[in-house]
């Protein structure tokens, strides 16, 4: 017995090494499961505070660009508003509940962002206090950006579209053929459109938009443009389509969040019929 203890005492450094490695690997695995609750991440109050201070300084220098983009978008939205405001010329009909908008929009600022890993995340300066919930879609006026992973009181963490574990249900705008956009971990301005069968005619320059089939994004948010079409080498029944992402991930500052107010209803329906919900 004493000998065993002596032996254990002699290899104590090695034992500690093994324990720390196991803890680290456990953290990696539990963080990478999409439903796993991560207690330690950048939405922590202290870390979020530091990141926000840093973003305050850095983003000050890109304020002019951000303003310009906002003005352009405002002008476009005003145009849309003018076009849709028609003076009623007859009786008012009360709208049916099925015509109510099922999406709610919010704004937030990116305070931390990474591009260079294969699992990239964004940290946003809004949290549960501001009505942010896990599962909300994140996009900018240029295109889709990601999905909220977890929230804390004041901050939230989102999967970037540049995260190999995120799939976004999408379609080619001109032909309505749907597939899933997934990042392959190589170039931060390109992603792959998967599961498009070979008989489909896809052309360079076609726009790829969100399909609205999942409960995260409404239909029609731009993801990017097709930059290359080839036959998939691994599975020749499918095309391998490269999409040039329209959102510039190296310059993300202000983002919009969209919540599907009927997410729970849809989700429980999917569960009832045992369809895995793809995000």
């Amino acid at each position: 017995m004493l000998r065993i203890l002596q032996f254990l005492y002699r290899v104590r450094a090695f034992l500690l090494f093994i324990v720390l490695e196991v803890v680290a690997i456990w953290m990696i695995v539990s963080n990478n499961s999409p439903q796993g609750a991560a207690f330690f991440n950048s939405s922590n109050a202290v870390v979020g505070g530091v990141l926000k201070k840093q973003a305050d300084v850095v983003q000050f220098f890109s304020l002019a660009d951000a303003n310009e983009a906002l003005v352009e978008e405002n002008a476009w939205v005003r145009g849309q508003l003018m076009a849709s405001q028609v003076i009623p010329d007859s009786l008012e009909i009360k709208l049916d509940s099925s015509l109510q908008a099922s999406f709610e929009f919010r704004g937030a600022r990116v305070i931390a962002n990474s591009l260079r890993f294969s699992q990239n995340y964004l940290t946003l300066n809004k949290g549960a206090k501001h009505g942010i919930k896990p599962g909300m879609g994140v996009f900018t006026s240029q295109g889709a950006v990601g999905r909220i992973k977890s929230v804390s009181e004041n901050y939230s963490v989102a999967f970037s579209l540049l995260n190999t574990s995120l799939l976004v249900s999408s379609k080619i705008k001109s032909s309505d053929v749907f597939g899933s956009v997934q990042w392959d971990g190589r170039n931060s301005s390109e992603a792959m459109l998967l599961y498009v069968p070979r008989h489909v005619k896809a052309f360079k320059g076609d726009e790829v938009i969100t399909s609205g089939f999942n409960a995260v994004f409404p239909e029609g948010i731009l993801i990017g443009k097709i930059s290359n079409v080839a036959v998939n080498e691994k599975d020749p029944n499918y095309l391998s389509i490269t999409v040039a992402l329209s959102a510039d991930f190296s310059k993300l500052t202000y983002v919009y969040l969209v919540e599907n107010t009927r997410f729970e209803e849809l989700d429980s329906l999917y569960r009832q019929s045992e369809i895995p919900n793809e995000y």
Binding site: L20, V23, A24, I25, W26, M27, I28, V29, N31, A38, F40, N41, S42, N44, V47, V50, L51, A112, S114, F117, Q119, N120, Y121, T123, V157
Partner: peptide
């Protein structure tokens, strides 16, 4: 914690 790469650097 800062880089959102939980466990990898550790």
């Amino acid at each position: 914690v800062f880089f959102e790469t939980i466990g990898m650097h550790a």
